[in-house]
Design a binder for these strands. Structure first.
Lengths: 217, 217, 217, 217
DNA sequence: TATGAATGAGACTTCATTCAT
DNA sequence: TATGAATGAAGTCTCATTCAT
């Protein structure tokens, strides 16, 4: 700000920096708790505590628990779909490779991140927040399915894949992905080891099964 | 109630019958509401009202909301798995037929019934009721997966199917089934028509994909 | 209910009888406290305690503090005006007697009762509850002023009173009455004895002054 | 702030002037808001905002909301009574003229000014702040009533007025004045036009009524 | 057995007050 | 001196649970 006082310029405002960061910290804490315990069973004081602030501070940034919840959904919904669509559009390899690539990426960019909890959260709370469910439907589900349908259609047009119902195929390709994150945030924490398949191994086999299941013989 | 009025004499019998039925009616009502709104957001008074009794009556049959919830889970968990295991044991047809048969039956006997809401319910509440999650794991998930593994193993032994990882295969076969009911009780009510695939068509294609994906070429 | 069991008929339901009385008891308690401390400074728990019930019970009868407040106003507003209007309509004496009668009655039927606190309450809270202020205006103020204007007009028509502005006269006749109750519920409790004029003496002199001030000389 | 920038050198002076004025601006803002919404319903942040400063600044000048309130009352109470007493002492005209003069002056110097809101404020909050009510009683009510009693007594001694109870007469003379300001700050803002009498016309008629009501016939 | 009025612990939310900047 | 982010006590309201009828 001022070249004459570089010392203070380095620490412009500890408070101000926190203020910038607060909403994000609160949203992160809220996502984790809402996913774990559900909306109703999560107390705002817990969210605040996990974000390292007091109850009152939360309400400086979000006017109510419900608005906090909506912000959590909006913040995390549909951030990765757009990226993925662009990548698919320019892909030049075989459909088998594309499907494997897509499934792998889905895991590294969404399924394996904390943001994936949103999937379980929406599933659990859809009936209590119909407008959010609709929003998620529009912003995440529809674009994702459209993307998968496009991949399959590309394979059909390239005569690599059988001529199947695109909508059904999309559901069957997506289902194990969704199921994987749903499981990760619900039963998995209760069921120690052994029985949980390694996500990447599961996804590799899923890609393999899909390719075999769809390929033109 | 009054010996002078024989017209009402029939009542005690009817009431007795109702009395017998009460717990079942309450469990049914509770399942539906817990599935729809979640445990925390469901009020016991709603459950009682839906079962046609008063709030106080519910507490005559279940000592607390939590015990009601546990009863709901115990009542609905694992009723169908044992039957299915017996049927598989005596099956004589091909693996393709067996897989199709299994998937169809799963839908008609569980996935398409109100009891399937339990799957979504457990997903949503597992973290809040770890012992119930464990119970469900032991009574439903493990037996179901074991059953599916047995089907696949039978196919491998009969040299109809490839030699795949049984555990991964079981997860991939089950995932779309679980996903179907999860969806049915969460997003589906919000997303009118068109986009929802017909369950039986979806399951038929799933069976087809699984057979193609696993068969020995 | 049943002539054969007169003993139980005498005590049909202690609970039920309380339920009947509860809203009235709560309204009475609320009126007293709202008048004394104002709406914002009165805690619902105090109201409940004064009515002899717990916090939760209050909310069985009134959905919110604000609705309780509105019920208090509606319950107490304008109950006496209609009676007074009927009496004035049939009066046959002189205007001096009528004015004295009116003022005396106002005190015995409203100004001296707990319900008079409503006047101070509305004064204090009008800006925070504009719709209630309007309601009070319509149900109490306007009818009361109309009644007083009618009394004065009758006197003018009978050539007992001077031909004055009816609206101004009404305000000047009413002002000391309102002031008396306002004082009674605000300063009076703080200013012990001596300085407080005897209400009936004050009202008698007021009536006298009004008659002298309005009479045709 | 910076000697190198003479342009801003004027600022300290301006700010100093503001600093001097701060308490007054805050008291003015507080009076208006306390009158309008009551003590409890007024937030200190609103007071600060109306005075053009931040919440924290208010607490530099007043240690608490309650002290701010007390300062508001002390600042506005009893400023005009002393002046009026002096004027009455040297008056040489008739009692009728004196009463008219007194009532007119009361309006121009108090009743028509923002400070008159204090009357309504004290009335509303007396029970919550008994010591302030006492203070107001001592500093404003008693002196005012004493002044009015003196005016009436002077008229009696000059054989212009009847020999009435001085205390009652004072209450009846003051009541419409108090009522006028009370109304002005409570119901008036809700009741658009038409029905509100013109203050000066009302006061003129009041003076007229008082003179007629008290004069020796 | 059935009811529903009553309770009170606990949740969300507000706001006077503090304090680092 | 001035700011406004942060705090937490206190208030409103909900709802599981009890119990007199």
């Amino acid at each position: 700000m001022d070249a004459v006082t570089p010392l203070t310029a380095a620490a412009p405002a500890k408070r101000a920096r926190r203020k910038q960061a607060r909403p994000g910290e609160l949203l992160e804490a809220a996502l984790a708790l809402f996913v774990e315990k559900g909306y109703a069973a999560t107390r705002v004081e817990e969210v605040a505590a996990r974000a390292g602030v007091s109850k009152g501070t939360l309400f400086l940034y979000f006017p109510s628990k419900e608005e906090l919840f909506k912000a959590v959904v909006r913040e995390n919904a549909g951030r990765h779909v757009a990226d993925a669509m662009r990548e698919v559009a320019g892909y030049t390899g075989t459909s088998a490779e594309l499907l494997r690539e897509f499934i792998q990426r889905w895991w590294t960019q969404y399924g394996g991140t904390p943001a994936a909890g949103l999937t379980k959260l929406i599933m659990s709370e859809a009936a209590n927040f119909p407008d959010l469910a609709q929003y998620y439907q529009d912003e995440v589900v529809q674009p994702s399915h459209a993307l998968v349908r496009r991949i399959v259609q590309r394979g059909i047009e390239r005569r690599e894949l059988r001529d199947v119902d695109l909508n059904l195929a999309a559901h069957l390709i997506v289902a194990p992905l969704v199921q994987l994150v749903t499981w990760r945030f619900s039963m998995a924490p209760c069921c120690p080891a052994g029985l949980l398949p390694e996500p990447l191994a599961l996804l590799a086999m899923h890609a393999d099964m899909v390719v075999r299941g769809l390929r033109r013989e």
